[in-house]
């Protein structure tokens, strides 16, 4: 895999970056702004403070692709021109991560868009890194959504990750609690999720996904010392930074206009 060089960049202001995203969606009438808003702070912190060039990031919740493209643009992985063309007719960058013959970048290694695929892909990458005894070790971060955890494949992968002791995997769960048509608690009960994952051997953390520098990020800094796969539950809001009076369900297909 050819690894693209990443620019060391000073993080832009959160609010400015978010506004850039809203404009991007508005211009294209691109839905899923709520999905982007809920994971904005998680990915902002990850991409500006935690990821190293040898790490992998897999966006399993493909709805948040505009945010991923924007972060990749800031790191010089995609160009300004590609960003301008993204999600428009003729661009290879669709509104979900592209399926390419060769890995686009290790921060966008695979296509996605059908929920439930990211954890399995991550397991394969982490297994490959483990068998190769990579030094320095690569960490594999995966962002999953409520909808992702509905899928049976995610559970197949969660079991395998624990079974194979793939400690380099950190699962970032953007728990905004709303899917396209319903509250996610119809499908996921957090208390049983935590107790079950704990039984499987996951290192768990749960907290607010919109507060920068909260404990999980400290843990990610010392990630190599945790000899368990990690599962962080971030409680987030789908209308965060959007109109607070807008119902979270209405933000799913919201395009900012």
């Amino acid at each position: 895999m050819e690894q693209q060089s990443k620019k060391n960049v000073l993080p832009p202001k959160r609010e400015d970056l978010f506004q850039e995203l809203v404009t991007f969606h508005k211009k294209r009438k691109l839905p899923h702004l709520g999905s982007v808003a809920s994971c904005f702070d998680i990915l902002y912190d990850l991409f500006f403070f935690r990821l190293t060039p040898q790490d992998y990031f897999i966006l399993s919740k493909g709805h948040a692709t505009s945010l991923l493209y924007l972060l990749l643009k800031y790191h010089g992985v995609i160009s300004e021109a590609e960003w301008d063309r993204a999600c428009r007719n003729g661009s290879p960058l669709a509104a979900h991560p592209p399926f390419a013959e060769k890995m686009y970048d290790n921060w966008m290694p695979f296509g996605s868009g059908s929920l439930g695929c990211g954890l399995g892909l991550a397991a394969g990458v982490a297994l490959g890194c483990l068998l190769q005894k990579k030094d320095p070790p690569s960490q594999v971060f995966v962002l999953v959504s409520d909808g992702d955890l509905n899928a049976g494949t995610s559970w197949e992968a969660l079991h395998l990750i624990a079974q194979l002791k793939l400690y380099s995997i950190t699962i970032l769960y953007d728990s905004n609690e709303y899917q396209a048509t319903t509250h996610s608690t119809e499908f996921i009960n957090h208390s049983s999720l935590k107790s079950y994952l704990s039984t499987l051997g996951y290192h768990l953390w749960e907290g607010d996904g919109h507060i920068p520098s909260d404990p999980p990020w400290y843990q990610i800094q010392t990630i190599n010392q945790v000899t368990q796969p990690k599962f962080f539950i971030f409680h987030t809001k789908k209308n965060f930074r959007l109109n607070p009076t807008m119902h979270p369900l209405a933000t799913h297909y919201y395009d900012g206009s």
Binding site: L119, G124, A126, L127, G152, A157
Partner: peptide, 17 residues
Amino acid sequence: TETNTLLVAIGLASQGF
């Protein structure tokens, strides 16, 4: 876990296996 296994295989093959 046939479905997930193919996904894991894709991830692993991306590492040169």
